[in-house]
Design a protein around this nucleic acid. Structure first.
Lengths: 132, 132
DNA sequence: CTGGATCCCGAGTGATACTG
DNA sequence: CAGTATCACTCGGGATCCAG
């Protein structure tokens, strides 16, 4: 694949493609829920326990969006008390590998980014940023 | 790599790892700018032309963050009129492959997601969602 | 147990005007 | 040309309360 074709995959028609993914996975909880559900089918409360810090409201909203987009399937059992189970669809599972690629990049580069961030603006001297 | 290790890469310490990346790339313009800069070193105005719809303000802000994180290098030439060039650092370039993995996923699944979204809530009948 | 409804706040973003 | 400053607005997301 040429570099031109590669950047086109991202830049595409003005970036609509990449923005489509980002709009879907970039909220605060989606990827965490998907990763959690890869471990297996879980109930609402179980999910809430496995994703520390998520509120009831956000868990509901995120699951609804995932269900709506076909990444997660929801099964409600007509019981008392209610029981609802969530699991990844095949399409949901297919999101894991690219997500892992990102996570791997994060692990490899996070320290360097933090270092760069700490150093930014600290370069005392005559110029604050690179001079050509 | 076992499934447990895989999900741990994402879920990690409560998801801090994956959130670190997302916080960095999930804004509206970062990935588009990175992809555009992969084509080569560009000036401010050139970048603005290559990224349709971005405002001067957001281009500046996004570039500052990328520079601060060490993903983009900025070179200012002491000329009149001013000339400033931006290019990816090696770390910035290393973000392209995982970004492409995501873009590829988007291309492959976007149609299915839109279909699922269109169908959601339209399943007329006795139950609105899956019954167990 | 599984949510829905409501209120509120801050972050991200766009528009616009100004500057060295 | 390459920014900076300010305002206004939207929207994600947390807290809280209510319901089947």
């Amino acid at each position: 694949m040429s570099q031109y074709e590669r950047t086109c995959m991202i830049r595409g028609d003005g970036g609509r493609t990449i923005r489509a993914v980002l709009d879907r996975i970039c909220d605060k909880w989606t990827l965490l829920i998907v990763a959690t559900l890869e471990e297996g089918r879980l109930r609402f409360t179980e999910l809430q326990r496995h994703v520390p810090g998520i509120s009831q409201r956000m868990l509901t909203l995120t699951l609804r969006n995932l269900e709506r987009d076909g990444l997660v399937s929801r099964t409600a059992y007509a019981e008392v008390p209610p029981r609802v189970e969530y699991e990844l669809t095949p399409m949901g599972q297919s999101l894991i590998p690219p997500a892992l690629a990102l996570a791997g990049w994060a692990i490899e580069n996070n320290a360097r980014i933090l270092a760069s961030r700490a150093a930014y603006g600290q370069e005392a001297g005559d110029g604050e940023r690179t001079q050509g």
